[in-house]
């Protein structure tokens, strides 16, 4: 790209430009040498045995039903039992699937589900954004996405969020809203597979307190004592 033309006037060799050029070059060389020093490999640490940390497994048990036997008043005992059950019912694992809107919540903070999803006609998501787009039949460890074969939202009539424990209690006992007889209610609480997920939520989610068995026993005892609701 340099066709021979008339010779350009010769530039002065020792002008200010030469001075700066040299200075710049020296600076750059010094910096490069400095970098080589800084970046020169040092000996690296080697692997050494470290004891595995002891996982402090702490199960937060529900009180056994027998604990409530000393409450003489049957109604008071029933209410106390339901309040104990309330530790599970109002746990994020349960509340997240009983939202007050069409949108589920998630995490221990009970914040809105992201991405945006909606319950759809069957509680399993909109036809174009089913729960199963992301949720499998089991908790997926690699992604932390929870799952269950029955994964879906509770019907809107069974919205728990924003309600007191007493209101939730009334709602549970009202077949028009819960869609369940007392036997079915007991089965839902004590044996339903999706409810059981709450004690095995995977990821870094906090499980519901106790076990489903303990919870089932409390619910059964509550119903046996007349199914009284807290005020």
């Amino acid at each position: 790209m340099s066709p021979s033309g008339p010779a350009e006037p010769r530039r002065r060799r020792f002008g200010i430009g030469f001075f700066f050029r040299t200075l710049g070059l020296i600076f750059v060389v010094v910096v490069i040498l400095g970098l080589v020093y800084l970046l020169y490999p040092r000996p690296m640490l080697q692997s050494e045995p470290i004891e595995a940390p002891q996982a402090a497994a702490q199960v937060d048990h529900l009180r056994p039903v027998s604990d409530f036997d000393n409450i003489a008043d049957l109604r008071a005992r029933s209410v106390a039992l339901f309040e104990e059950a309330g530790r599970v019912i109002q746990n994020p694992r349960c509340m997240n699937c009983h939202p007050r809107s069409d949108r589920p919540t998630q995490t221990d903070a009970v914040r809105a589900h992201t991405p945006w999803v909606s319950r759809g006609f069957d509680g399993g998501g909109e036809p174009t954004m089913r729960c199963s787009t992301c949720h499998q039949n089991e908790n997926i460890e690699a992604s932390g996405v929870p799952g269950n074969p029955l994964w879906h939202l509770a019907p809107i009539e069974m919205a728990w969020q924003g309600k007191t424990l007493g209101e939730i209690c009334e709602q549970l006992l009202d077949p028009a809203r819960s869609g369940m007889s007392r036997e079915e209610l007991l089965h839902h609480m004590a044996e339903d597979e999706l409810v059981g997920w709450a004690w095995n939520p995977g990821g870094d989610r906090t499980p519901a307190p106790g076990t489903q068995q303990e919870f089932g026993a409390i619910i059964a005892a509550w119903l046996d004592t007349g199914g009284a609701c807290p005020q």
């Binding site: 200075l23 750059v28 910096v31 800084l38 970046l39 490999p41 640490l45």
Partner: peptide, 28 residues
């Protein structure tokens, strides 16, 4: 002694950046 920490890396980058900058400002 075990190699370049983040800070040293930043310093290295700084010097390099400085070199380029001085290049820009001082000369061709």
């Amino acid at each position: 002694r075990f190699g370049m920490t983040r800070r040293r890396m930043i310093l290295g980058g700084s010097l390099l950046g400085g070199a380029l900058l001085v290049g820009y400002v001082a000369t061709h």
